[in-house]
Write a protein that binds this DNA or RNA. Structure first.
Lengths: 217, 217
DNA sequence: CCGTGTGAAGCTGTTCACAGCT
DNA sequence: AGCTGTGAACAGCTTCACACGG
């Protein structure tokens, strides 16, 4: 009998989903070491996680383990790949060909494991036509909507200055994008049909600065 | 009478600290627009925040507002700058001169507002000696400890492959760094005296992938 | 009268601890 | 005998709602 996979119930937290991705990465490492089975406790010890949390996170989606034994590494990986929808190619467009956008466009994580960068655009006519070190050609931002439609883009990455970010966001959404990774230092207006992840480097630095002055809490 | 600033009590959450940085950014924008006073409700409406949360976050640190009126923009900014310790230069070293590390080394947020990149190193002898587009010279990783000590580095940024990250982390800590921004896809072992912020791009992408398959929750 | 500051309520996420299955 | 899966306890965070001060 194949192990059950539940249809994900409502009310699973963002934190759980992000951890599934971490669990998958840990399992990939164990598989590379030819480990066949792993218990939640093994995983927790090895990767500094919490075993109860691992079990609870996984249990939202099904019963993947064997009591008294643990989880089959390969099998659990396959479940996580399915849950995270990594069995399907996800096409990504980068908006903004500055330092960060260019670096991301040839960042390995964006062109492996089901993700593929299919375009990078910039509103600066000076930048359009240039080749990135990764071999992509920067296209003019005026073609963004067309690129999203014709290349069936799923995910937009915003690396433009903050003043331009809301406009870019609106254009992405209008063209049919439902998932956005935002590096611009702005609060985008949330919409129920679009999932946004903010990566705010300045906030992270200032956060660390606080703890340098107020250690150990 | 100057407004009281409380000494920060224990038990303030990481989430509150990260939001303070966001509030500061919002205030900077308001100040640029020459707004003098702002209420928590104004701030919330304008930047898609929650007014009760703003008041509560600020109240951990003092009574900065005037009842019936709101907050003085300039004054609140100054308080936040003090709380976040942005009145002091924070020196940053980047470990790993790949795409991302190089891009970060001339990212504006890393060289403004009290932060300054004082070095970028790489273990690859091919890379040492090269100049980044931002005009920094990549130094050999063997000099990392020396750089941290002589240039009084506060913050380490890890942009090396995940296999090398734990070793780099140990070296940073041994040399006296207490704050780390980690871009490597690894779970570093937490230590009470070192604050770590993880920025995991792959996790963010896989997170978005999940929601593309399971919309609207 | 208005907006802050704040207890208290409500909600969400984490951890415990053990019943149940292999 | 051992580890998962899970209700229940606990801890932490957010939101409410109003007393208080300007």
């Amino acid at each position: 009998m194949p192990p059950k996979r539940r249809t994900p119930p409502d009310g699973i937290s963002d934190l759980t989903i992000a951890r599934l991705s971490i669990y998958l990465r840990c399992l990939q490492q164990l598989e590379a070491e030819e480990m066949v089975t792993v218990s939640s406790q093994d995983l927790a010890d090895r990767f500094h996680l919490n075993s109860a949390q691992i079990r609870k996170d996984l249990a939202y989606f099904g019963e993947f383990g064997i009591r008294g034994v643990g989880y089959n590494v390969r099998e659990l990986m396959d479940h996580l790949i399915g849950i995270l929808a990594l069995d399907e190619e996800r096409r990504v467009v980068v908006v903004g060909a500055g330092n960060l956008g260019t670096a991301l466009s040839h960042f390995s994580g964006f062109n492996t494991g089901g993700f593929r960068i299919v375009g990078i655009v910039d509103s600066d006519p000076q930048k359009a036509g240039r080749r990135t070190p990764g071999g992509m050609t920067v296209e003019p931002a005026s073609r963004l909507t067309e690129i999203i439609r014709t290349r069936k883009v799923h995910i937009g990455v915003i690396t433009v200055p903050s003043a331009a970010a809301p406009r870019v966001f609106d254009e992405l959404v209008a063209a049919g994008v439902h998932a956005v990774l935002n590096f611009a230092p702005t609060q985008l207006k949330e919409r129920p049909d679009v999932k946004v992840r903010n990566v705010d480097l300045k906030v992270n630095l200032e956060f660390l600065s606080f703890f340098l002055r107020h250690p150990q809490r």
